[in-house]
Design a protein around this nucleic acid. Sequence first.
DNA 1: TTGTACGCGTTATCAA
DNA 2: TTGATAACGCGTACAA
Lengths: 342, 342
Amino acid sequence: MVTIKEIARELGLSTTTVSNVIHGKSWEVSPATVRRVEEALDRCGYVPNIVARNLAQKESRIVGVALKASPEKSGNLIKDPFFSVVIGAIERQIRLAGYYMMLYISENTDEIIRQASSWNVDGLIVVGLVDDDGRWVEERFKKPVVCVDNCSEEGLRHFVNIGLEDEQGGYLAARHLTELGHRKIAFLTNVLGAVELARLRGFCRALSEAGIEYQEKDCLMINIFHDQVDASLNEVCGRLEDYTAVFCVSDLFAVGLMAALSDRGVRVPEDISVVGFDDIFLGRVHRPSLTTVHQDVEEKGAEAVRALIAMLQGEEVASRDIRLPVRLEVRQSTGAPSGGKA
Amino acid sequence: MVTIKEIARELGLSTTTVSNVIHGKSWEVSPATVRRVEEALDRCGYVPNIVARNLAQKESRIVGVALKASPEKSGNLIKDPFFSVVIGAIERQIRLAGYYMMLYISENTDEIIRQASSWNVDGLIVVGLVDDDGRWVEERFKKPVVCVDNCSEEGLRHFVNIGLEDEQGGYLAARHLTELGHRKIAFLTNVLGAVELARLRGFCRALSEAGIEYQEKDCLMINIFHDQVDASLNEVCGRLEDYTAVFCVSDLFAVGLMAALSDRGVRVPEDISVVGFDDIFLGRVHRPSLTTVHQDVEEKGAEAVRALIAMLQGEEVASRDIRLPVRLEVRQSTGAPSGGKA
DNA sequence: TTGTACGCGTTATCAA
DNA sequence: TTGATAACGCGTACAA
């Protein structure tokens, strides 16, 4: 690896001069020297050693991106389509902003912080919940942190969060179903974190506007641990016999559910209407295509990077609670109830 | 950020001693000192500065992971399910091996190399084709390189490659179809790189064993540029009227095709049988579920890391051309031809 | 316009 | 058992 020092020696110049040319401080260097240095740089294929540069400067230009894996999807989290799209968007924006991306996946907040500190990253983007470690993180990690989809109250006190109009999403989904005439509507989720609870609130609001009473048993839980998902789907399908429509908190569940229903001879939307959330590719190519609450996942990633970079450059972020809009995307998986179960 | 120097000063010791304790070279330090230092380290929340460590050592313990994006999927490559699963597996293995992962996406080999050199990565994993830049890369980048899915002859001369029994995959798919009685079988792909050509060779071999003559027009090309994919699918559907079966080089295309066929009232597998390649989640939850050539994508990523780490530790890699096995996964999207078109 | 010298945090060598 | 000191490659005051 060729260094500045070597270039300088070869040209009989000082490292300062070479460094100045590299950084375009041409006004400090004579044009002739600039040309000589540039030629040598080019010829030797000089590449700056970023590690050394980082050490010599205050900033590292690294953005740490941490995926906080929950135990049940651990192993290979990134294959969840939602995550991969977010990460892709984040990588892209980081690169375009002239930063570098260090990717880390862990279930352990402690480890994430240690990793980030070790690399001296300028800032951190955390995808997934930091739950209630917010305060603790802020104490130990003094640099800017942006979260994606951590809308817990505790989290918001400590970080900027990029979230969604989740309540509105749940509302739109349920209102669509009540407007179609459904009265027996289930809510399907795997956990009830802050995000899911917000969607559930909107869901209940729409039901209540339609004069429908939500009961706790209308909330179906699906177990997505790998070896239990089939049994769980089986149970869910059974309980859905009492309903004419179901709202799933993610397209992934919705499509999996539609497949399970189809295997049991239950037709969508004739026998039961299904609404998803996210609007990922999976739902668009499924047949019947999935009616879903659309969110712009790429924009979410981009927004996270934008907020972080702004903070890195000392700008005050207008809001610590950024919420991207959602909209309903009506496709084939929803229709009027057939009357049989009403 | 608390440094070794600060700890040393506070304890009235030298940095060497502290460093020795950190690295567990306890035999060089008295037990009492070890305890004192460890206590201080813990109390101050010391975290080693990896950047400084890298500079002081020969190795960086960074593995660069580059996605070489092709222009048509550029933008957000990682959302391709295949890529995200590979990356997920790679990240995991790198982490478990005690290395760090630097992710970079670019269409430009030059930039990938510059990036890798800049960070002084110990080795590089390139996913996607390096085409014919192989020789050029090897000249400029002196560290170990492992490719995934670059089975071009030129590539193999320069790097270890983790590939697949592609020929066998194409063969299994086509033989399955001929055994079902199909005689009119199309081959669908977006490009004809080394990987696709190998699959096509196997495809032709099976056809020929069944006494079927392959003609060039049997190879249908699909255009996956975002705004042209619908028109292209339309054309493909039209041309498929002459066939009773089609083998797609990727599940992504197969599922997209099945959706398009379904929209046109063409039934799978009654009117046409469809076989995919990859065996991703998408095909498993689609109904009819997709008959496909299974590959273990996670294993591919893991194998790539394993090979690279072996090279980093100075082991000679047994083979430069590692090919993972494939197998046929028969599901619902294939059946006997209905006879109408035979 | 160019050069000298120091510091960034760590590891490694060698002497005490 | 411990400590001084040099080195890693770069950026930057400050001096020439």
